[in-house]
């Protein structure tokens, strides 16, 4: 790295590249933003210009309206921004998600955004991007996080539907990404009946279908022609915030499930008042996170949003250079 200036620096609004005069996933409006994926804490409205994958731009337009940015550009191949060369690579997190590789004369940096290494049929798989500095998320950066095979978690849900056929099952799942992932898992497990969805999922799910992700028969859960008893034995997917609203009152004696990597820790599941925790995550667990660092073998690892301490400690034990980036504004609760 020597005398060249830092390829990325930390600013209050997020990671900033001086060579290219842009931010990556800034948490406040900036002139030029590169966005890894469309989750709300990474992709905010109001930037001057946004560079992202086509799907991320589409999803941002669905969430924030077509005027979410003054100008937009689809990321394709290697692109030059000022002195920096950047490229986008699949992150395996949600539809359109990308890692961003940046080089501005000095070391090659890969900003992972959020990423996952297990197969996710709703998006392209993560690919390794060789780098000197790897910026990794640490949402599940504790050795207690071990995400089981999502198919076995899906079986738990189906077993519960069989055990309580007179009740509805409401699966709390983040509206972008996790919801569609749960739909795909249900389809793969052979659940080919209708899946009832909360209104906030409609446009996002329709976009997935248009992009070639087959989600099957989705129906609005708020259809007024349906009576309470009609939801017996049915599966409803909704953002977890509905657990606290009166929305859940329309269903018969519902079993509240929650699809999230946090569900492997009992105290977290209890905190959400969940009856059926489903450990389904779109992030790397501890084993995949540490395996990724080992495989990429970067000269330096920067650790951001999540449990930085444990990942830094692990790097120390491995004799790897690492430092925490204390970036504000990323939420891990929504996973």
């Amino acid at each position: 790295m020597g005398a060249t200036r830092a390829p990325l620096i930390q600013r209050p609004e997020g990671l900033y590249c001086p060579g290219g005069d842009f931010h990556i996933d800034p948490t406040q409006p900036v002139d030029r933003a590169l966005i890894t994926h469309a989750h709300a804490d990474h992709a905010r409205a109001g930037h001057g210009a946004v560079l992202a994958t086509r799907q991320t731009l589409d999803l941002m337009a669905i969430r924030y309206g077509e005027d979410f940015t003054a100008s937009r550009q689809i990321a394709e191949g290697r692109m030059r921004i000022g002195e920096a060369e950047v490229s986008f690579h699949p992150a395996g997190h949600i539809l359109g998600s990308a890692q961003i590789a940046v080089q501005a004369g000095g070391p090659r940096v890969t900003v992972s955004g959020d990423y996952a290494r297990v197969a996710n049929p709703s998006c392209a798989p993560w690919e390794p991007v060789p780098c000197d500095i790897f910026v990794t998320e640490a949402t599940f950066g504790l050795p207690v996080f071990h995400h089981p095979d999502p198919a076995t978690e899906t079986q738990k849900l189906l077993a519960s539907v069989a055990a309580f056929p007179e009740r509805a099952h409401i699966v709390g799942a983040y509206s972008l990404g996790k919801s569609q992932r749960v739909m795909m898992l249900l389809r793969e497990a052979g659940w080919d009946g209708p899946i009832y969805i909360h209104g906030s999922l409609e446009r996002l799910s329709a976009y997935h279908i248009a992009e070639g992700v087959p989600l099957g028969d989705l129906r609005p859960a708020t259809d007024n022609s349906l009576k309470k008893a009609d939801f017996a034995g049915q599966i409803v997917i909704a953002p977890p915030s509905v657990f606290e609203s009166t929305w859940a009152q329309r269903f018969p004696d519902p079993v509240l499930a929650f699809a999230s990597g946090w569900m492997s820790v009992r105290a977290r599941a209890r905190q959400r008042g969940v009856e059926l925790p489903l450990v389904i995550s779109d992030h790397v667990d501890w084993a995949d996170l540490t395996r990724t660092i080992t495989e990429l073998d970067p000269a330096e690892t920067w650790v951001t949003h999540g449990r930085e301490d444990a990942v830094i400690r692990w790097c120390e034990l491995q004799g790897r250079a690492a430092r925490p980036l204390h970036l504000a504004g990323y939420e891990d609760e929504a996973e």
């Binding site: 504790l142 207690v144 009992r266 105290a267 444990a310 400690r313 034990l317």
Partner: peptide, 12 residues
């Protein structure tokens, strides 16, 4: 590692 265990126990 005791430190990793301590951080984890604290969380769980």
């Amino acid at each position: 590692d005791p430190e990793l265990f301590a951080i984890s126990y604290d969380f769980v």
